[in-house]
């Protein structure tokens, strides 16, 4: 369906050359939702912009619908682009045009007649749930609504692919969820292949069936979401447990640096495999007779696997607490004592 083959791209600036993409290959099947994750500057935007040739790669091939885009002349390229929808982090709606006219724009560009345009625009806005905002100007819409308009606009010419460049990065978590839901629905009902880029694992996890991890211009790993996560690749780990876990303010004041009578260790643990938090708690209590208090947990569960960080207080005898830590060590669960409370 889409093949990105051995793409490289170097930018030349005053202070030298910078290789933003280095021999990147990704293949998308029809109906896929593929997520490309990477940190800032990894080359994600450059990569997605190469797919519709907004950016021209130096080397490699972009094959969409069996057509090699790099071999096309301007006119044929325009025709292909009409069938490749794109949405952006900052929506890129025309402030001078109403919601209706924004969605109508791609249809006008392809020379559709007024009646067809009207019918299609209303249909699209209904699909994205904005049937009541047709004559508003973008400035009167919320971020989520603007992205819905942008999605409607991207779908106007019935594309077979939708490219999403950080489409939810400017939105709050609830709105992000709703937009991702909409993308999933579009993928399923309209059979549109989606390529999205993001720096949030949450986004990939909630809708992608395949994932590629981009780091410093190179794909370091790609495949089914579960497989990539289970690989334990260090860069993948970063995305899962990149958030620092902080000790609540009220506890900070009470926290002692050394052990003492009547104080319990405050433990930070990092889950990274098949041992779940529940297992650890159960095991501590029943096997070592250590009651465990969960102070905080930020954990992702993928199938049988658990990833993330948690703050625990081990409320057992000193020797028993040490046994629990020994057990964690044995299972390769990073743990360190942040203090005693």
């Amino acid at each position: 369906m889409i093949q990105i083959k051995n793409i490289s791209k170097t930018f030349y600036k005053e202070n030298g050359a910078f290789k933003a993409l280095d021999n990147v290959s990704i293949a998308l099947e029809k109906g896929d939702i593929v997520g490309i994750i990477g940190s800032s500057g990894a080359g994600k935007s450059t990569l997605i912009r190469c797919v519709n040739l907004l950016e021209k790669p130096d080397e490699g091939e972009i094959i969409v619908n069996n057509r090699n885009l790099l071999a096309l002349n301007n006119k044929s390229l325009s025709a292909e682009r009409e069938k490749i929808g794109m949405i952006f982090q900052h929506f890129n709606l025309l402030s001078s045009k109403t919601v209706f006219d924004n969605v109508a724009l791609p249809l006008e560009l392809t020379g559709k007649d007024k009646i067809t345009i009207r019918k299609r625009v209303v249909e699209l806005l209904t699909l994205v749930g904005l049937g009541d905002k047709i004559y508003e100007y973008p400035k009167n819409l919320s971020g989520g609504q603007k992205q819905r308009v942008a999605i409607a606009r991207a779908l106007a010419n019935k594309p077979h692919v939708l490219l999403c460049d950080e489409a939810t990065s400017a939105l709050d978590p609830v709105t992000t969820g709703a937009i991702l839901e909409l993308l999933k629905e579009i993928n399923q009902t309209l059979k549109i292949t989606i390529l999205l880029i993001t720096h949030e694992m949450e986004v990939v996890k909630s809708i992608c069936n395949r994932i590629a991890v981009l780091d410093k211009g190179k794909i370091v790993i790609q495949g089914a979401f579960e497989d990539v996560v289970a690989s334990g690749h260090s860069i993948v780990q970063q995305f899962i447990s990149k958030k620092k876990i902080t000790i609540p303010g009220y506890l900070k004041d009470q926290l002692r640096q050394s052990a003492a009578e009547g104080l319990f260790p405050l433990l930070e643990i990092e889950l990274n495999n098949a041992v779940s938090l529940e297992t650890i708690i159960d095991f501590s209590r029943h096997y070592y007779h250590v009651p465990v208090k969960i102070l905080k947990a930020d954990i992702e569960t993928v199938g049988e696997l658990s990833f993330g960080k948690s703050l625990l207080i081990l409320q057992g005898q000193e020797a028993a607490n040490e046994n629990v830590m020994g057990y964690l060590d044995q299972n390769n669960i990073k743990n360190n004592i942040r203090g005693y409370v």
Binding site: N52, L54, R81, L94, L105, P106, L109, N157
Partner: peptide
């Protein structure tokens, strides 16, 4: 970004000037 969006839609230079 608006020029970028229009290019992604397949708009030519003249169309971008007139429509965007």
């Amino acid at each position: 970004g608006l020029i970028e969006a229009a290019r992604a839609m397949g708009a030519g230079t003249f169309q971008i000037v007139r429509k965007v």
